[in-house]
Design a protein around this nucleic acid. Structure first.
Length: 105
DNA sequence: ACCATGACTATAA
DNA sequence: CTTATAGCCATGG
């Protein structure tokens, strides 16, 4: 459980209009990427965790099916200024937010 | 302790 | 594009 807390903290720190990947968070916490996704699943609606800002390394909304509705995640991202095409964030590299760099351990 | 599972990632074919 | 393999780590049976 302690790991989840850290994951939540990092996700909450993601600036609006930015997004990161499971792997980046995993690296920052020095853990596995799958655990991050697992944490998101556990955080599902329980906390104020902007899970929509966390996508896979390609900027694809792999976890959209876990939201209230399959389109909710995309809508939230578009509402923050992102452009979604075929379930993936365009110019993902430009809005990418890496905790390892931004928070600089 | 072992095995299966998963919102992942990397590499290979 | 799809599969397969392997590594990753917490949780549950």
């Amino acid at each position: 459980m302690q790991r989840f807390e850290e994951v939540y903290e990092v996700v909450k720190l993601i600036p609006k209009g930015r997004a990161t990947s499971y792997g980046a968070i995993a690296k920052y916490l020095n853990t596995g990427a799958r655990l991050v996704g697992w944490a998101m699943n556990a955080a599902h609606g329980l906390l104020d965790v902007p899970a929509h800002r966390v996508v896979n390394r390609n900027g694809i909304l792999t976890g959209k099916l876990h939201f209230e509705s399959p389109t909710k995640m995309q809508e939230l991202l578009e509402a923050e200024g992102h452009t979604i095409k075929e379930d993936k964030i365009l110019k993902f590299k430009e809005i990418y937010w890496d905790p390892v760099i931004e928070l600089d351990i």
